[in-house]
Design a protein around this nucleic acid. Structure first.
Length: 270
DNA sequence: ATGGTGGGCGCCCCA
């Protein structure tokens, strides 16, 4: 089973790029973030026609919003309202890909970007980001305690590039929101809460640069290559051996009228 | 040191 995560930055504007992605990667599940689309305006028909007839969405007019498209039946879906704001920043689906396959639960997240100033006392957006990560920690700690932290995937735009080689210059970005020590520590606590495995770094050596986002503001994003790895796919330990491949479709950043994020994917033997 | 671009929505927010 191939699972994709992609911050699409408006699903209505880039419906054609989602269809292109379907052709290029032939995934089973696609998790979108920043759909910026109310549920009743979501382009379901076009996606169903392409084979993705099972869709779970948590959309908000104008801002953020997540949606998960599946070729296989969604047997359960669940939305958690982080920080009590009514935002569209999480949706979970449970999918069973065949009669003998074990069900897999996929958590699709869009963590708040956090604004410009990395100080929660003067920047409420940064405070929101830290609070959101705190709620993620509690949620997955509880899940672990209940013995239910298995058969799960956590992915999405987490808006944090934790490692030295997850950014083009760790030194120059150390005070830039997305790469500050406090965020990286909070993200590590989320990861520890259910012993999530960051599969990316098993397939791409930690000392190799790896990005999933490049700013729109660069004159030539590919030439300057000042990227950040803001998007992640994690799995619970029981699924680690089942992950057979991982990749970032960097080419999609160069498609016509692109998102500023590239899609990333894993192959999972179920 | 600064400002650069791109979305949605409606005279300005967010990334």
């Amino acid at each position: 089973m191939r699972i994709v995560s992609w911050n699409i930055n408006s699903v209505r504007l880039r419906e054609n790029l989602v269809l292109k992605l379907m052709k290029e990667l032939d995934p089973d599940i696609i998790c979108l973030q920043e759909t910026k689309c109310p549920n009743n305006q979501f382009p379901e028909k076009a996606f169903a026609k392409a084979g993705f007839s099972h869709i779970a969405k948590n959309g908000i007019k104008g801002y953020h919003g997540v949606a998960t498209l599946s070729k296989h039946a969604i047997i359960e879906s669940d939305i958690v309202d982080y920080c009590g704001k009514g935002d569209g920043r999480h949706i979970a689906v449970t999918v069973k890909s065949g009669k003998t396959a074990k069900p897999v639960t996929v958590h699709n997240f869009y963590v708040p970007a956090g604004g410009d100033e990395p100080d929660p006392d003067i920047n409420e957006k940064f405070a929101h980001k830290l609070a959101f990560l705190g709620e993620m920690q509690n949620r997955f700690k509880k899940l672990k305690k209940l013995g239910k932290a298995a058969g799960q995937v956590l992915l999405g735009d987490l808006n944090i590039a934790p490692g030295e080689h997850d950014v083009w210059s760790s030194k120059q970005l150390k005070n830039v929101v997305s790469h500050t020590a406090v965020e990286i520590a909070e993200l590590a606590k989320v990861q520890a809460a259910a012993q999530w495995d960051d599969v990316a770094r098993r397939f791409v050596p930690p000392e190799e640069k790896l990005y999933s986002w490049w700013s729109y503001r660069a004159r030539d994003w590919a030439a300057s290559d000042r990227g950040r790895r803001l998007d992640h796919i994690w799995v619970t330990p029981d699924l680690s051996p089942a992950v057979s491949d991982y990749g970032v479709l960097r080419a999609a950043r160069g498609w016509e009228r692109p998102s500023d994020h590239a899609p990333l994917w894993i192959d999972l033997k179920t």
